[in-house]
Write a protein that binds this DNA or RNA. Structure first.
Length: 230
DNA sequence: AATAACTGCAACCGCTCCAAG
DNA sequence: ACTTGGAGCGGTTGCAGTTAT
């Protein structure tokens, strides 16, 4: 596909301020989308994916930067418990936060704090510490990559999560069951009471995925099937 | 002061999904 | 029905900054 000759190689690495400016200006005048053509039209020597990522994670308006608040952190933990590594879904519940940011925050701050956390632990046994050294990291990950299907590192349901291409669909159909089995009631209470939700009138920003669909099916399941009192 | 080790984050990669042709 | 290409997602890597020795 990319074997077209004379195709200039896309620039990689950190974005420079002038590149940011070009991209920002371009998107603000032409709108999002058609990322593959952005590099040509804007003059940026970047791949479309790179442009999209930069915009989405850094340049987009209303991006909230800086440390996570306690509410945000709590939300991430709860959502991760329910959804696993569905970073885009989790980020969708956190206005101004991106999936990449949530993912990084989880991996660097939260994961190691939780009992099941397994990355870069500071108080683990020597064997585990050895596994966490930088030079061993790559070897370990490559070895895993050779022997494991991708996307199977979720702490939640890592054993029951399904391999292969139907995983997503099956997950979606199963998600209400998962929620029903877990602390669904407290989750609902949290949503209602959360300081991040100014009122109950759908003030979430549903950026990407149809989270409402998940929610609806869950509500349906709970209210019809389980006799919940809400 | 030097440098090794660690940490956090930005960015890339590979894959899947899905709409258009 | 099939192919193709764009978009999006999660996992992984690279590296700059920080801390420990």
């Amino acid at each position: 596909m990319e074997s077209r000759e004379a195709k200039p190689k896309a620039k990689k690495g950190l974005w420079k301020p002038e590149e940011d400016l070009i991209l920002k200006t371009y998107v603000e005048t032409h709108g999002e989308g058609n990322w593959s053509t952005v590099s040509k039209k804007s003059g940026l020597m970047r791949g479309g994916k790179s442009c999209r990522l930069r915009w989405k994670n850094y340049l987009r308006p209303n991006i909230k930067r800086g440390g996570m608040s306690q509410e945000e952190e709590d939300m991430i933990i709860r959502m991760h418990k329910l959804l696993g590594n569905r970073w885009s879904l989790i980020a969708g519940r956190l206005p101004g936060r991106t999936d990449n940011e949530v993912k990084n925050y989880w991996n660097t701050h939260l994961n190691k704090r939780l009992p099941s956390g397994k990355r870069k632990s500071t108080d683990s046994n020597p064997d585990q510490d050895d596994n966490n050294t930088k030079e061993n990291k790559s070897k370990r990950l490559r070895a895993l990559g050779d022997s494991q299907p991708t996307g199977n590192t979720s702490p939640i349901g890592s054993t029951e999560e399904l391999e292969g291409k139907n995983q997503e669909k099956e997950e979606r159909s199963a998600v209400s069951d998962v929620w029903a089995q877990q602390d669904a009631q407290s989750m609902m209470n949290y949503y209602i009471e959360s300081p991040m939700v100014p009122d109950n009138n759908a003030t979430f920003v549903f950026d990407d995925e149809p989270f409402l669909a998940y929610w609806d099916s869950f509500v349906l399941f709970e209210s019809v099937g389980c006799g919940g009192d809400w």
